[in-house]
Lab assay of single mutants.
Amino acid sequence: KRPMNAFIVWSRDQRRKMALENPRMRNSEISKQLGYQWKMLTEAEKWPFFQEAQKLQAMHREKYPNYK
């Protein structure tokens, strides 16, 4: 399994919040909304999620050194 990228790190919590706030919203619509919201974030707002993704990638490399 691949390490999470910055968008996935960010969207994990956002998806839960959105699903709780909009229980009738379909998963496909939630995904569209999340994509739009991510695009609207500034680079500074995205930065912590890129840092977290880099940490996860480093841990993944250490744990699975022969992963493609």
Rank of each mutant, 00 (worst) to 15 (best):
P48K: 07
N5Q: 01
Q57A: 11
E52G: 04
Y64G: 15
A58D: 09
I30T: 08
S31W: 13
E62G: 10
L56D: 04
W10H: 06
P48R: 02
L20N: 15
K46I: 00
N27Y: 10
R61C: 03
Q33M: 10
N5D: 15
Q57E: 14
D13A: 15
M59A: 11
F49L: 04
P65T: 11
F7K: 01
R61V: 10
R15C: 05
Y64S: 14
Q33E: 12
Q14A: 15
I8H: 09
K63Q: 14
Q14W: 15
S11K: 01
P23W: 05
N5E: 11
M4C: 00
L56K: 08
E45M: 01
A58M: 10
Q14H: 11
E52S: 03
Q51Y: 03
L20G: 11
A58G: 10
P3V: 08
S11F: 04
R26K: 12
E21D: 11
Y64N: 14
R2E: 08
A19H: 08
W47Y: 12
Y36S: 10
S28D: 13
L41A: 01
Q54P: 00
L56I: 05
M18W: 04
K17N: 11
W10G: 02
W10D: 08
K68T: 13
Q51K: 09
M4S: 05
K55R: 13
E52W: 04
E52P: 01
K55H: 08
F50I: 07
E21I: 11
H60K: 13
W47D: 11
K32D: 08
S31Y: 13
L20S: 10
E43I: 06
N27M: 10
P48C: 02
W47V: 11
K1L: 03
Q33L: 11
L56M: 13
L56R: 06
Q51C: 06
R15E: 11
E21N: 04
E62L: 08
S28T: 04
P48A: 01
A53Q: 09
A53W: 03
M25T: 00
G35M: 09
Q54H: 06
K1V: 00
R24W: 09
M59R: 10
K68N: 09
T42N: 10
M59T: 12
M18I: 06
R26G: 14
K46R: 07
Q54F: 12
P48F: 15
I30Y: 03
I8G: 14
G35R: 10
P3S: 13
A44P: 02
M4R: 00
E29C: 03
T42E: 06
E45Y: 10
E62F: 05
N5L: 10
S31D: 15
Y36D: 15
W38A: 07
S28K: 02
N66D: 15
Q14V: 09
N5W: 04
K32A: 12
N5K: 04
M25V: 05
P65A: 15
P65L: 11
F7I: 01
K46M: 01
Q54K: 01
K17W: 01
I30E: 02
M18A: 02
E45R: 01
A53C: 04
R2F: 11
K17Q: 12
D13G: 09
A19E: 13
A58Y: 08
P48Q: 02
N22G: 04
M18Y: 09
S11I: 09
R2D: 14
K17G: 02
P23D: 02
M18T: 08
N66R: 13
V9A: 03
W47P: 02
E52D: 03
K32E: 13
A53S: 05
R24M: 14
R24Q: 13
R26C: 05
R26Q: 13
Q14E: 13
S31G: 05
F7S: 04
R61E: 15
R24L: 09
E52N: 06
I30R: 00
A53R: 00
L34V: 01
L20C: 14
A6Y: 06
R61G: 14
L41C: 01
L41S: 07
K46S: 01
A58V: 09
A53L: 04
Q14S: 01
A6N: 13
N22T: 01
K68V: 12
M25I: 07
A6S: 04
R26N: 10
N27E: 15
Q51W: 01
S31C: 15
N22S: 03
F50Q: 12
S28R: 06
D13C: 01
M59P: 14
R24C: 15
R24F: 05
P3A: 10
N66A: 15
K55S: 06
E29P: 08
R61L: 13
K1E: 11
A19S: 08
N22V: 05
R2C: 12
A53M: 00
I8M: 14
Q51A: 06
F50S: 03
M59F: 04
G35Y: 08
Q57N: 03
Y67S: 13
W47E: 15
Q37T: 07
K32R: 12
G35D: 14
N66M: 14
E21L: 09
I8E: 15
K32P: 07
E45K: 03
Q14L: 07
M18E: 00
W38N: 15
Q51I: 09
H60C: 08
Q37S: 04
A53P: 03
A58F: 06
F49Q: 01
M4L: 07
A53V: 02
K55E: 08
Q33P: 05
F7H: 02
K63G: 11
G35N: 08
N5R: 03
S31T: 13
R24A: 10
K46W: 02
Q54N: 10
Q51S: 08
M4K: 04
V9N: 00
K46C: 05
S31P: 00
T42S: 12
E52C: 01
G35E: 15
I30K: 01
Y67C: 08
E52K: 07
F50N: 10
F50K: 13
A44Q: 10
F7A: 02
Q37E: 12
H60P: 12
E21S: 10
K1F: 08
M25Y: 06
A6T: 06
V9E: 07
L20F: 07
S11P: 02
K32C: 01
R2S: 10
W47S: 09
W10Q: 08
A6M: 00
M18S: 04
P48E: 10
T42C: 02
M4E: 11
S28M: 07
P65Q: 12
L20T: 12
L34W: 00
V9P: 00
E29M: 06
